[in-house]
């Protein structure tokens, strides 16, 4: 009762607060550059950066770079998920399989995916394959663990009930296991989507495969910090949009059971 009253009283001013928050942040950035706290040669006034950003957003090249980054992001995320979900289902439903693979999984999971960059470059060169492989490797682990936990978390009573009603293996899987595991997989996708973007950008920065990451470093070495910051803003907005989209997807999938809403695999 208390909290409800407070929420309804506060809701109207929320938007104002958020706008004020953004305004304060922008003002701080502007102050830092105008006051000379940051050297002007490298840190152009914020206003110029925004102008450059809108100029870029109006043209085609920025969208081409975004498309390239998103392509690597999507192929990697897709490959990682397509591999991780079935394996996770198998490991989640069979104790023996889980035990057999546990040590290997626990050893491989903490390996930083970027350590594989040099090897991947040797094997696949500097194109989309490299990006896809690195993203897929990075998202494989969170997807795998979310799926395993999701399947293991299926209520045994629900399975017994399905059995008692004479449902076959496939029907049981489709009606009980899959719906229970889906929220976990959705959460895994949300976590993985931001990891995938980090890896895609990283790969472009380090290896030089075309995309936003390379565009940023090209702008930097070309001595065009205005464009560099505009591109960084574009990257941030892309990440934010992906987060928002996957957050919405997750909420949709989870709507039937809010209690399922937890990140078990970080």
């Amino acid at each position: 009762m208390v909290s409800l009253a407070r929420v309804s009283a506060g809701r109207g001013s929320d938007l104002g607060l958020k706008v004020a928050g953004i305004a304060v942040a922008l003002l701080l950035v502007e102050l830092c550059t105008r006051s000379g706290l940051l050297p002007e040669r490298w840190f152009p006034p914020a206003g110029e950066i925004y102008a450059e950003f809108f100029r870029l957003a109006g043209g085609r090249p920025l969208w081409v770079e975004i498309g390239r980054t998103l392509l690597g992001w999507a192929t990697g995320l897709g490959l990682g998920a397509v591999l991780a979900v079935p394996i996770g289902m198998a490991l989640g439903s069979s104790r023996t399989a889980y035990r057999l693979s546990r040590v290997v999984i626990e050893f491989c999971r903490p390996v930083p995916p970027v350590a594989l960059i040099p090897l991947t470059v040797l094997v696949y060169g500097t194109d989309l394959q490299t990006k896809t492989f690195l993203v897929a490797f990075a998202v494989f682990w969170p997807m795998l663990f979310q799926t395993i936990y999701g399947v293991q978390d299926v209520d045994p009573v629900a399975i017994d009930t399905a059995r008692a009603y004479g449902l076959g293996t496939f029907a049981r899987f489709r009606t009980v296991v899959l719906p229970s595991a889906t929220p976990y997989i959705a959460t895994g996708l949300r976590i993985s989507s931001s990891i995938a973007l980090i890896l895609a950008i990283t790969e472009e920065l380090v290896v030089g495969t075309p995309g936003l990451g390379r565009a940023i470093i090209v702008a930097q070495s070309a001595g065009d910090p205005t464009r560099m910051y505009a591109l960084i803003i574009a990257t941030g907005l892309l990440g934010w949009a992906l987060n928002a989209a996957f957050g919405a997807l997750e909420r949709r999938v989870l709507s039937w059971h809010p209690a399922q809403r937890q990140e078990v695999a970080r």
């Binding site: 958020k18 928050g21 953004i22 942040a25 931001s194 973007l197 980090i198 895609a200 950008i201 990283t202 920065l205 936003l212 990451g213 940023i216 470093i217 702008a219 930097q220 560099m228 910051y229 591109l231 960084i232 990257t235 941030g236 907005l237 990440g239 934010w240 992906l242 987060n243």
Partner: peptide, 18 residues
């Protein structure tokens, strides 16, 4: 909230040149 959401969505390696 909006500032935090933006900054945490920004892939950190993109800030290396900065």
């Amino acid at each position: 909230d909006p500032v935090v959401q933006f900054l945490r969505a920004l892939p950190p390696p993109a800030l290396i040149p900065f």
